[in-house]
Simulated scan of single mutants.
Amino acid sequence: MSETKVLALVGSLRADSINRKLIEAVQAQAPEGVTVEIAEGLGNVPFYNEDIDGDAAPAAVAALREQVANADRVLFVTPEYNGSTPAVLANAIDWISRPFGAGAIKDKPVAVVGTAVGQYGGQWAHNDTRKSAGVAGGKVVEDIELSHAYAWGSDPSQDAETVAKFSDAVAKLVAADEVVVPA
């Protein structure tokens, strides 16, 4: 059995990010044959600018593109900022979508999950991220929807049931054969 590599892009740069904690908990119990890696350095990726793209793209961009290109699957793990996708994640998607039609995300199965402090768990951000990832060329696994509402004062990464739900989402992403790009 070959190893399946899932690359997680976390939409929060905060040191104490609950989304990062969740994916770290999932990493620790990844199914056999699955490696979950977290993309590092998203905070070092400059805002997308076509003037600095191409052969002269910054090192942080080249590293991100290489991480995505080397992954079998991409998992976006994100909170919701002001009702939408955090800028750091939208920016990462912009960079990995280029060059147009041949970006690192092209034809990669992707899913979007996460938690947020609101009562809906970041659903708007997750929907926006799915749309953006699909437009960028990723193959969105539509039946993976996990928007965990975060209760103030608790840590979902310490809750076995919550971590199991996120681990199940990773397993579904790995097992996904048929994926569709949203219209």
Rank of each mutant, 00 (worst) to 15 (best):
M1K: 11
S2G: 12
E3W: 01
K5I: 13
A8Q: 05
A8Y: 03
L9R: 02
V10S: 04
L13E: 10
L13R: 11
R14W: 00
D16C: 00
V26T: 10
Q29E: 14
Q29W: 00
A30G: 08
P31H: 02
E32D: 14
V34W: 03
V36R: 02
E37D: 15
E37P: 00
I38T: 13
G41I: 06
N49V: 04
N49C: 04
E50V: 15
I52M: 14
D53L: 00
G54V: 12
A62F: 00
L64G: 14
N70V: 08
D72K: 05
R73E: 10
V74P: 06
T78E: 02
P79K: 02
P79F: 02
N82E: 08
G83L: 07
T85K: 04
A87P: 13
V88L: 10
V88Y: 05
L89V: 12
N91E: 12
D94T: 08
R98L: 09
A102K: 14
I105L: 15
D107G: 11
P109L: 07
P109Q: 10
V113F: 10
A116F: 04
A116C: 11
G118A: 06
G118P: 08
G118I: 07
Q119N: 09
W124E: 11
D128T: 08
D128W: 01
T129P: 02
R130H: 02
K131E: 11
S132E: 08
A133I: 06
V135F: 14
G137T: 05
K139L: 15
V141G: 05
I144F: 00
I144G: 00
L146M: 03
Y150R: 04
W152R: 12
W152F: 15
G153Q: 09
D155S: 12
D159M: 03
A160W: 01
A160M: 01
T162G: 07
V163I: 06
V163W: 05
A164H: 06
K165V: 01
F166K: 06
S167Y: 01
S167P: 01
S167V: 11
A169D: 05
A171E: 12
K172A: 12
L173I: 13
L173P: 10
A175H: 00
A175M: 01
A176H: 05
E178A: 13
V179A: 15
V179W: 04
V180E: 15
